[in-house]
Design a protein around this nucleic acid. Structure first.
Lengths: 189, 189
DNA sequence: TCTACATACTCATGATTATGACTACTCATA
DNA sequence: TATGAGTAGTCATAATCATGAGTATGTAGA
């Protein structure tokens, strides 16, 4: 049950509606977790019933009303407990890696296409995260921000996301190069 | 349904028993996927029933008999189809990131302990992957191996695993430093 | 000799995630 | 004046993953 904690952590930055939260989690902009809108609405309902978050209705005229949620004291305690409990290790789980693992027994042309698609996707996220980091630290240097800024949590997780996507991009590119080279040299034996 | 393809991809390197496969997947040595033994036995049974793998009994004297599995032609076709189909993007999903996201609202001492545990774990995997890569390429250089070696799939995925764990380790260390620094300067205001 | 650990699995059940389909209103654009 | 896209959600169900417990044998170390 880590989604609930991811939601709590996301709400620490201020009140959000289910829809806003869903967008962040769905696009993966929330670079520390990923979830579908339906999961989030369900989780928000559960969290509210348990008193870990509190919602308030905001009436809107031009568009549907929405509910903004914020973390309660009980919610903070829950997060505290979660943070203190031992963390289980996380593993990669990626379809693309499975495909590359099988690269020697499978058509590589389609695989290369998918790798370059992934590389482009990763690059887009690199750009996004880079922008986000700059926005968060404003005109301060990174060191200054990390020492004196309030709310460095999102900054730190964003750094991990950045490095992860850089790693993705670089690996995709090097893998493409390796597969292409073999295609070339093995085309006419 | 990607576990089935991960199993097929793992069996490309040669016949394996459920137990051997389970060890690889459970320890996460299979750095392109992760699964528990029970999942694997269930998946192996399903794959065999569908004719994608074939098992043969090996009688042993000093220990329980085992069944070795290998991919059939139908299994290869299945893998081929999987590799050609579009890949959905993969996202990070890590409890530790959730905790760091909440770092500003939560006790950092326990968090730092977990970060250094994770850093050590990541370092151990870095060492392991490094060793695996050297074993795979033997006395050839990386370039030579990637050009002329048979079975480069496992090598490529292992490279991704290595970079991922290096990233983990580095991020953990820098995050620890940042949190420690704040603890120090904020201890006595 | 007792204990723990390694090999080699199976069964059952619960928790979590993923997916598709639906409602309802507004705004911009072709 | 359709058409599509954005806001703001809900419902139901299928697929997948995780967990605990249990079976049976052999080998090495305290």
């Amino acid at each position: 049950m880590a989604l609930r904690h991811a939601v709590l952590a996301a709400l620490l930055d201020g009140e959000l509606s289910g829809y806003q939260l869903a967008k962040a989690f769905d696009l993966g902009v929330a670079n520390f977790w990923y979830a579908r809108p339906q999961q989030l609405y369900a989780e928000l309902a559960r969290l509210e019933k348990e008193g870990l978050i509190a919602g308030r209705e905001v009436v809107q005229e031009t568009r549907p009303n929405k509910r903004l949620f914020q973390v309660t004291d009980a919610g903070l305690e829950e997060l505290q407990g979660f943070a203190a409990a031992p963390t289980k290790p996380s593993f990669i789980r990626d379809d693309l890696l499975v495909k590359v693992q099988a690269a020697d027994h499978v058509t590589t042309t389609a695989l290369i296409a998918q790798l370059s698609e992934r590389a482009a996707f990763a690059q887009a996220k690199v750009d996004l995260f880079d922008k986000l980091l700059r926005t968060m630290r404003g005109d301060r240097t990174e060191e200054e921000f990390l020492h004196h800024g309030s709310r460095i949590g999102p900054y730190l997780t964003c750094q991990r996301g950045l490095a992860f996507e850089q790693g993705n991009r670089d690996w995709c590119e090097r893998t493409i190069a390796a597969l292409r080279e073999r295609q070339r040299t093995r085309a006419r034996p």
